[in-house]
């Protein structure tokens, strides 16, 4: 399938959604303060662009650094749990249970602990992204067929040689699935971090605009945040295609 034919259905769906949004926003019964129309949103985007971009840059930095932290610590945790069975037995249930904690309520605590500025935002983004990265990488490492591990043992491979030459490459597709999920939720984490206390960033801008009843600016901010998440998702997909080229060959054969 060509790219154009693949992009057409979601583009049509999106256009329909935007048209419906415009229609609802134009209804006399709908207050301009409640709902900004697409045209008003675009106008706000154009008018406030320098302001919005300044905020977006701050938020993007929080997201990217937070994601990087999650990848580093997630990889260490996953490989550790993979190699040391008692550690996996002890840590895995705790890791899953930790997902029941509403991370959002931790944001104000982080601000208390780490002060305003970058640190609490990084902590919240990293915390949200840590789980999908770790769990997917661990599943990938454990997905290697037992027969392949037997073969490596029979070839005289050490535990580390098997990890490096077989398990880590085999886990890459699964790792990237986790990274894609993490990329989309990372923006949410950064926004919560900014809402708990910040003096810059797109999330803070949206919150302020909302308080000042500048509804079109709120919508413009949301559009930019969404674009950021989608962009990161696509970037993770691109990284996967570069890092896992053999998957395309296999798919073509299948």
């Amino acid at each position: 399938m060509t790219a154009a034919r693949r992009l057409l259905p979601p583009a049509l769906l999106l256009a329909t959604g935007v048209a419906a949004w415009q229609a609802v926003a134009s209804l006399a019964a709908v207050d301009d303060l409640t709902l900004a129309s697409p045209t008003e949103t675009v106008a706000a985007l154009a008018d406030d662009l320098p302001l919005l971009l300044d905020g977006a840059l701050v938020t993007l930095l929080e997201v990217v650094l937070g994601l990087a932290l999650a990848v580093v610590f997630g990889a260490i945790a996953a490989v550790g749990m993979h190699l040391v069975r008692p550690l996996r037995r002890a840590a895995y249930p705790v890791l899953v249970a930790s997902q029941a904690i509403p991370v959002v309520v931790l944001a104000p605590l982080f601000v208390l602990a780490f002060d305003y500025g970058l640190a609490p935002k990084l902590a919240i983004v990293a915390l949200i992204c840590f789980f999908p990265v770790t769990v997917n990488l661990l599943d990938g490492l454990r997905s290697v067929e037992p027969d392949l591990l037997k073969l490596m043992r029979s070839l005289g491979a050490s535990r580390l040689a098997t990890l490096r030459r077989v398990e880590l490459p085999a886990a890459l597709p699964s790792f990237f699935s986790g990274l894609r999920v993490a990329a989309t939720v990372s923006v949410i984490g950064a926004v919560f971090g900014e809402w708990a206390g910040a003096d810059e960033g797109l999330g803070r801008l949206v919150l302020l605009a909302n308080n000042q009843l500048q509804t079109p600016r709120v919508y413009a901010g949301i559009v930019l945040l969404t674009l950021m998440a989608v962009g990161l998702f696509l970037l993770a997909g691109l990284a996967e295609r570069l890092a896992v080229p053999w998957r395309r060959t296999e798919d073509a054969e299948a």
């Binding site: 067929e145 392949l148 029979s154 005289g156 077989v166």
Partner: peptide, 17 residues
């Protein structure tokens, strides 16, 4: 025995990458 034998399993188990 591990050091003396080369074992070829039923499936080729080639690494796809």
């Amino acid at each position: 025995r591990l050091a003396a034998c080369a074992y070829m399993p039923q499936r080729d188990l080639l690494l796809p990458w």
